[in-house]
């Protein structure tokens, strides 16, 4: 890990964060062990690793949905992991989640309009006129025709539409970082491509950074500037995407890279 791969003034800075959970039968699971990494403004960082490696636990830590047992989390130059929920309120808007399970990501009693209105009302400068603001959000994530979708419930949308709606909600509060936990794992291949294009387009227009959690190395290569490889709760290797794929140092990373390469061979 070389210093020049770290952003100079990181947007998100996680310093030796750890968390463990007590299982039902009393055993402790060290889900995240002394993890350190940074995400710069406007950068895409992929967090890769197999299921159970602690990726989602780390995402929840970053979002302050759980607090670390030890270590620090800094967002935009400010330490946030020890703040109360009340103090966190405004800071939280700087980073927003996009969830894996899009069907559970929306309150089933709210329409598209109501869900997005709720998010817009939380933003630093809530729009006075909600309807055009909601329609604009829907158009930004390419959900057309916006006016026809407003009164639908999220469960009446397709999987891909729901995932776009999840992105729209995140964008409603103008975040600088989006933490996306396997946002494409439920979608089929053509929709994956479209959503990936959308994410790239949003990044270009708004300068948003992504912490992109995935088990898919090919996706990480296509999309990320830097890659963090997580194994058994630790980050075993991190570097630019070129570095990781050209000369992986860690044994586990080598296996992942090799597996991704063989998938590419089959595809070709």
């Amino acid at each position: 890990m070389t210093t020049e791969t770290q952003p100079a003034r990181p947007l998100l800075d996680v310093r030796s964060a750890s968390i463990s959970f007590k299982q039902q039968h009393g055993a402790m699971v060290h889900a995240v062990r002394s993890v350190s990494f940074a995400v710069g403004a406007g950068e895409t960082v992929a967090l890769v690793g197999e299921s159970g490696s602690g990726k989602s636990s780390l995402a929840r830590l970053v979002l302050c949905l759980t607090r670390p047992d030890s270590g620090e989390i800094h967002l935009a130059g400010e330490r946030i992991d020890h703040l109360s929920n009340r103090e966190l309120r405004t800071r939280r808007l700087l980073m927003q989640p996009v969830f894996q399970d899009a069907s559970a990501a929306f309150n089933p009693r709210r329409t598209v309009m109501q869900s997005l209105e709720q998010a817009l009302r939380c933003s630093a400068t809530p729009p006075v006129d909600m309807r055009p603001a909601v329609e604009e959000l829907l158009e930004q994530v390419r959900l057309f025709p916006a006016s026809r979708l407003l009164n639908r419930f999220s469960h009446e949308l397709s999987g891909g539409q729901r995932q776009r709606l999840g992105i729209a909600r995140a964008l409603a509060v103008n975040p600088r970082l989006i933490v996306a936990d396997e946002p494409l794992s439920g979608a089929d291949v053509s929709i994956r491509g479209q959503i990936l294009d959308l994410l790239i387009e949003i990044q270009e227009s708004r300068g948003i950074a992504y912490l992109f959690i995935t088990h898919d190395m090919t996706l990480a290569r296509a999309f990320a500037h830097r890659v963090l490889v997580m194994y058994k709760g630790e980050i075993v290797e991190q570097g630019t995407t070129e570095q990781i794929f050209a000369e992986p140092k860690n044994e586990y990373t080598k296996i992942l890279v090799k597996a991704a390469a063989s998938i590419d061979d089959v595809a070709a």
Binding site: L63, L65, N85, R86, L88, R89, T90, R92, L93, M95, Q96, P97, F99, D101, A102, A104, A105, F106, N107, Q118, A119, C122, R169, V173
Partner: peptide, 13 residues
């Protein structure tokens, strides 16, 4: 579930 966590991330009490 996602919608409760999303609300938390929006700073809702």
């Amino acid at each position: 579930l996602g919608y409760a966590e999303a609300a938390r991330c929006l700073g809702i009490s």
